[in-house]
């Protein structure tokens, strides 16, 4: 038997429905750190159900890591449901606020870029504007890159949010797979 080999390193998007209680974020963050899982982004907000929050994690790792992340999340009593979203079946977005230096000479040029990206200027000051942009990480990164020459003073990004396409709600339970296409893999606590 071979050990569980590490391959197909990639980025995964996992959402979790969790109890909205004090300490839940600490439980989840603690689990990630003590098991050596890497989260590249984490977004939290209330869900459509009172008492429950929804989290979106972007996790780096191979299939083994993702399977363990899902299972270990399920072991936490406050985690109600975990969904591993594939890029094809989900809409993924991030929002960013970018504070850019601007003056009378550059403002028009910035506004043009903002238009092309379907972003918005949400605050105008004497020597700076705040740009709000929504999109996937690449789009957000491209916007920031193009704003860079004007002088980016500050950026604030939400981290990735994700939702399955179509009528299916996040209610579809993620298979806590136990290897292969085993039916038992559908076990959830």
């Amino acid at each position: 038997m071979v050990d569980v080999t590490l391959n197909t390193e990639r980025v995964h998007t996992i959402t979790a429905l969790v109890n909205d209680k004090p300490g839940v974020l600490a439980r989840i963050a603690g689990m990630f750190s003590r098991r050596g899982f890497n989260i590249s982004s984490l977004a939290v907000g209330v869900s459509e159900t009172p008492g429950l929050s929804r989290m979106t994690f972007v996790v780096e790792g191979d299939e083994w890591v993702v399977e363990q992340v899902v299972k270990q999340l399920y072991k936490l009593i406050d985690v109600v449901r975990v969904t591993n979203l594939s890029a094809e079946s989900a809409v993924m977005r991030e929002m960013a606020l970018v504070k850019v230096r601007s003056n009378a000479d550059t403002r028009a040029e910035i506004m043009q870029l903002v238009d092309i990206f379907r972003a918005a200027i949400v605050d105008v000051g004497k020597d700076a504007v705040i740009v709000e942009i929504t999109g996937n990480e690449e789009k957000v990164a491209a916007m920031i890159k193009l704003l860079q020459p004007f002088g980016v003073r500050e950026t604030m990004r939400t981290g990735r949010l994700a939702m399955t396409r179509g009528a299916a709600s996040g209610a579809r339970r993620e298979r806590a797979h136990t290897g292969g296409s085993a039916p038992d893999a559908e076990v959830v606590p």
Partner: peptide, 17 residues
């Protein structure tokens, strides 16, 4: 514990229960 199955060795037949 589903998290134990497949954690350390590859499993041909996983049975959680």
């Amino acid at each position: 514990d589903p998290a134990e199955v497949g954690k350390n060795v590859r499993v041909t037949v996983p049975i959680v229960g």
